[in-house]
């Protein structure tokens, strides 16, 4: 019995440490979310582009190379807009700034809000695609039965590796009407 008595506080110490580990690992599960974002931003893993305005190109254009930039779009399930790029493909020199327009048509009788999510293949190229202006930075409101032209201005970083000769930028359009931000709603009602 005496032996067990001396062991009891010891048990408590180990249990406490193990419980702390459990709590830490639970927190770690959630910490994986921001860690994953940081990891993707640094490595371009998963084809994520930087979702913020890039600094305008310094103007150094590498005329010796041409990179094909292809555009594809798709609508998330249940998203009724017509959505597509004006051009399927452009050929650019690294460093050269280009604008490509994307066309959207809301063919429903309701005012709607959409959000486009970009993805780049190959993932490695995502690091070198700089967007100075993009409709994907914000939610996009569109009145019922109306059209809009959404510009996207970009340039490729001249440091883009030699072996990348083609990259594909894909946009998936999501219906965000139910989760629209306040300023987008204000924008839409003022337009009416």
């Amino acid at each position: 019995m005496t032996e067990q008595n001396t062991q009891r506080p010891d048990n408590g110490r180990i249990v406490k440490r193990l419980l702390v580990t459990v709590v830490c690992m639970f927190a770690f599960g959630f910490a994986l979310v921001p860690l994953y974002d940081v990891f993707c931003d640094i490595t371009g893993f998963n084809g994520r582009t930087k979702n913020e305005q890039a600094v305008v190109s310094a103007g150094e254009i590498d005329k010796s190379r041409v990179v094909r930039v292809q555009f594809i779009t798709r609508n998330n399930k249940g998203m009724p807009w017509d959505f597509g790029p004006e051009l399927k493909e452009v050929k650019v020199h690294p460093g050269e700034t280009r604008v490509v327009n994307f066309l959207a048509h809301n063919r429903t009788p309701n005012n709607m809000v959409a959000q486009a999510i970009p993805s780049v293949a190959p993932g490695e190229a995502a690091l070198y695609l700089n967007k100075t202006e993009c409709f994907c930075f914000n939610q996009q409101p569109l009145q019922a039965n109306s059209d809009t032209v959404m510009p996207m201005q970009f340039y490729l970083d001249p440091d883009i590796p030699e072996h990348i000769t083609t990259l594909t930028l894909s946009y998936t359009l999501y219906d965000m009407t139910a989760n629209a931000t306040a300023d987008v709603l204000a924008q839409m009602s003022s337009a009416e």
């Binding site: 459990v22 709590v23 690992m25 639970f26 599960g29 979310v33």
Partner: peptide
């Protein structure tokens, strides 16, 4: 178990 069951709990919570 101590290391990964909490991560599963986090995943289902998300």
């Amino acid at each position: 178990l101590i290391a990964v069951m909490p991560v599963l709990a986090g995943a289902v919570t998300m």
